[in-house]
Design a protein around this nucleic acid. Sequence first.
RNA 1: GAGGGAGUAGCGAAGCUGGUUUAUCGCGCUGGCCUGUCACGCCGGAGACCGCGGGUUCGAGUCCCGUCUCUCUCGCCA
Length: 598
Amino acid sequence: MVFSQRTVTCGGLTKADDGKRVVLNGWVHRERNHGAIFFINLRDRYGITQVVVADDADKELSDTASKLKMEYCISVTGTVRLRPEGMINLEMSTGEIEVKAEKIEILSTCATLPFMIEDENKAREDLRLKYRFLDLRCSGMQKRIALRHYFVKAIRDFLSARDFYEIETPTMIRSTPEGARDFLVPSRLYPGKFYALPQSPQLMKQLLMCSGFDKYFQIARCYRDEDARGDRQLEFTQLDLEMSFVQRDDVLALMEQLFCHVFKQILDYDLPVHFRRIAYKDAMNQYGCDKPDLRFEVEMKDFDALAAKSTFGAFHEALASGKGAVRALVAPKTEGVEFTRKYIQELESAAKIYGAHGLAWMKVADGKLNGGVSKYFEGMDDEVISSLGAGEGDMICIVAHPQWKKCCTSLGAVRSKLGKDLKLIRPSFEFCWIIDFPLFSYNEDKGHWEAEHHMFSMPQDRFIPTLESDPGSVLGDLYDLVLNGYEVASGSIRIHDVELQRKIFRICNFSDEEAEEKFGFLLNAFRFGPPPHGGIAPGVDRLVMIISQQESIHEVIAFPKNTFGVDPMDGSPETVDQKQLDELHLIINYPKKEEKQS
RNA sequence: GAGGGAGUAGCGAAGCUGGUUUAUCGCGCUGGCCUGUCACGCCGGAGACCGCGGGUUCGAGUCCCGUCUCUCUCGCCA
């Protein structure tokens, strides 16, 4: 197709270009027809420029102009001129100039739009996803995709300058029996055999360490066949990173420098040089989760002793086994929010989602405990109020549970809800490290220990003697990076010793034979002088989401899947031809529809 | 696997406790007018069996049951 190709973009013209003859290519963003004069806002990736078809236009030009509709793709040839006095639009970066059209070519027309191309598309998400190519024309999406590009570029620049190599690893690998469900790819050449898509390049990067590439990173696509959430979907992108000859603090320091650099580069935002470090146990006790939002101050307090002194039966029951806990927090008196029965009930349901049986509460009025469970604290008013630091008009919320973790997470949910409802959250970026995670957790259903993180993380030295006798109390050289209540990175110092690695497999119920069968290639590599190494993997989607103030990673992914793993645009996943199945030696065993009992 | 929310023209919404109506409004679409707009303005028009299927009722967008789709959360996600 022959057409007038652009000489400039729609974002770049200024009054310095006055008088210049230019060609613009772009989309009709808005069109205003005043009869004998037309205004066209022409849009491309770089911005919007006003095109004028003036009253002196010939018939051909004004006929073409009158045919234009939103989202027609056109080429405009014309001359830049200053806008007349009083017609300057300060809202637009190009608002001081306009292009007087001499020729307009319609490059393609546009059907009736399913939604308007605006700054932020207000259509339902499934419609946005079906017409994602149009949704992406909206300036909000354009900005976020651009931000993502600059985010990744800043990472590459930073790491390259520090001698890291970017190395690609396979996306079709062996399925390994840990973590999430794998996505499988059937093999045509080997009937009955499958590749798996990587949940992360974990083992490959450890092997690269064994190869001597002591500083590695990769912007890696990862796949996990689990249900989606606002902050995760079945395929996502990680900055995967690994280093040899390092200890935990080297990794943490590098990440602190990296994020300081990146935030300065793309947001001109100054992060602190060091991020706060919180032990997992303290995070649970104080914030009720392992990814605390530190943008507001409400903290949970140990209420075991005071609960034991109270006369409230539920507290005593929770503590009876010795494994339970009672935690309390103070909801600050806030203008515009009444701690009504209805609101307290809302808080209680938030707690119940995480297993709490109830939410105990009392208010501080005239320096005394009032309402709720206050009658069980007779004579303890001053003690309770001062130990929690509660003030006049504040409300004390208490959760008791026979399981420590459930007690904490339930009250943590209350804390989160208060943060939002009482508008306590500051607009800022609050990073912190969560360290000293337990290495194992006991899986009641399966009846054996499992790795909290993954089986390749190093136990902290002091626990190595008691590894097998007391797995539950072993802390690992594990670390999560948390930002504004989201886990944005997770990593560890890895095991590089065959015997220690075998021990960990055994604790996680893998026999030596099984371990050899599934992870033999790693164990084999560890026989040939593996270096001590460790790394981390920040989630790119999540970080860009938080930086761009969004609540769903869909807003920063060009073509995301919906909550059911379906792409409404291309319709995937979809059935395939019988021929394809035959080639792959597959027979589909459809699930039987359950007969409904009538 | 479980729970909460939603579904009304192409899009976004209103429609209270069942009953004045031809189901309302904004955007878009469409016909016309308009020489400085920039979310242009003005006049006119088309477009919805109120997700789908039953039921209750003299009467259902509204109440009940079922079902589908979407969305958030728990479980799950090292």
